[in-house]
Write a protein that binds this DNA or RNA. Sequence first.
DNA 1: CGGAGTTTTGAGACTGGTCAAAGCATGTGG
DNA 2: CCACATGCTTTGACCAGTCTCAAAACTCCG
Lengths: 325, 325
Amino acid sequence: MPFLNGTSACSSDFPLLRTGRRVSNENGETALRAAQRRTCELCKFREGCLGHPLPDERQIATPLITYRRRVNKGEVLYRSGAKCEAVYKVRAGFFKTMMFSEDGVGQITGFQMPGDLLGIDCIGCGKSRCDAIALSQSEVCAIPCGNLLRSSRDSEALQAHVLSSLCDQIGSNHGVMLLLGNRSAEERVVAFVINLSERFLALGSPWSEFQLWMTRAEIGNFLGLKLETVSRIFSKLDEQGLIAVRGRHIQIRQFDALRKLIGGADYHADERRSRGRASLRSPLVDSKIESPDHEPYAALRLAKRIIEHAAAMGDDISTPSQASV
Amino acid sequence: MPFLNGTSACSSDFPLLRTGRRVSNENGETALRAAQRRTCELCKFREGCLGHPLPDERQIATPLITYRRRVNKGEVLYRSGAKCEAVYKVRAGFFKTMMFSEDGVGQITGFQMPGDLLGIDCIGCGKSRCDAIALSQSEVCAIPCGNLLRSSRDSEALQAHVLSSLCDQIGSNHGVMLLLGNRSAEERVVAFVINLSERFLALGSPWSEFQLWMTRAEIGNFLGLKLETVSRIFSKLDEQGLIAVRGRHIQIRQFDALRKLIGGADYHADERRSRGRASLRSPLVDSKIESPDHEPYAALRLAKRIIEHAAAMGDDISTPSQASV
DNA sequence: CGGAGTTTTGAGACTGGTCAAAGCATGTGG
DNA sequence: CCACATGCTTTGACCAGTCTCAAAACTCCG
């Protein structure tokens, strides 16, 4: 059951409600939960999904995921200032989160892809502080905050999961701060591309060749650069043969050379006292990928597990397709 | 009972252990808890302290704060990569937290002052990702992670408190990202000074005149600037009469003019759709300060509460003193 | 085919970085 | 109490990297 792939994107089946809102009557709830269980079992992000009851815990009473929602390109999933109602697991498509200063200056705080959590950063404050905007036709599973908070008081594992998501986000933010504060434009762009590549790999998608689903301006905004600078650097890297750029299509040609360009630009300090070992943990988002440095992409171990799992589930890994973006 | 003020700093009383380690035998524990309760009752950060049982909750079984610890200037409270054992409430003194990339580039991720939490950002991951280093003679209360996690499963209010601390940190980080990505050197430095000022105000310390407890290099590192740039901007602001700078002593002369320099450089989007109202919420750290814009420092309301409280407790608010730094 | 939005590329301006040297404050030892 | 060393800060001169403005090319979509 491919999701959001090519032409089937707009006609794919929706086991959960089409309304995008919670079903409240008892009958509906039963059908919903059955459908949900069925769908979650097939879901490629089941493992490690907040919405999925954890193996070592007794079944959580409340179903965490109450509905799915399709979000069209450009549509706002939630807006800053709005009451924080739910946390969202991205099931398909791509998002950006963006904050605004009072004078209207916007800063993209992150890009989310399938498997990523959206809105976990406002579970502790009543209101969202970011807009979350779909960059492509997308789909999310919603986990209402109330459910999540209640259940994570019952389940130690779920509590740990929530906290770990929050901490990962903080770690990732610190990484971006290091990037913005200490790295040149070129290093930032390269780190960005490598990060995307690693995240695609972890998803089981092609990692050496992919589509950017955001504009140069959005990349620039995220990296603290102007769009022209981003464009120039892409062109330069292309000339040098490190990557091939055709519009939003990126192909990585010399991964090691790219890594060398950012030197040790890995923002995780965990191993910094043992300088010998290189870590490939994602620079922009801590994706929990560890690797020895003899295999350039040793996030492979994790990725393999994910791919095998997805395959076993008969699930296709969704790839961003420019056509549908 | 002044803390860390002038000459009394090194001789002040220590109700909890001098060893800085937990007392484990039953007798010690009892004495410890009694001392702790006594001291917490006098503590000016009691309100809103993670370590303090919350009013609307049944008494939490385990005492959250198990020990106090004095940290000398330059001493490391915890190191990145180390097992995350506790969260720390800064009771006196000042800290910086710093992360390192693999190639040794360091990025200061924040400065902490009395009342701030340290290490909450790694409660979800086993290991710290930052070094926490005292910038002055300091003192912290330690809340072991185990206690905190257990208790915050029992107490909804404590759970909310922990999550809110984490989210505040994320919000603050996003603010810094906006600062680094979108603001000029001058705007960054001004935002930094205003932020410090507001935090001193919230502490009940003089807000228009204070000591910087960090070097120009540290400010620059945090703001993504070189120390020379920071110095030049301080000099320029001094010439313009907006602030008076004598080494690490800062006096704010024209607060409104400073605010104007950073325009609406407030990173919180909450109110951005109602542009009329200016928000003084701290740009670098979300200190929960709200204010109408007719009083330049309307964080005053909160501050007053804090000061009154401290006064009622007979507690002196510690002020950073360059001599002791 | 035309139009909107995005991307590329160029030329020139300017911010902030680099390097260097002098000034200052603090602390130590004679 | 002074001389000296150390570390921090200030200031200047110069330069590089990035931004700004502008125009043309390209892509996608109706």
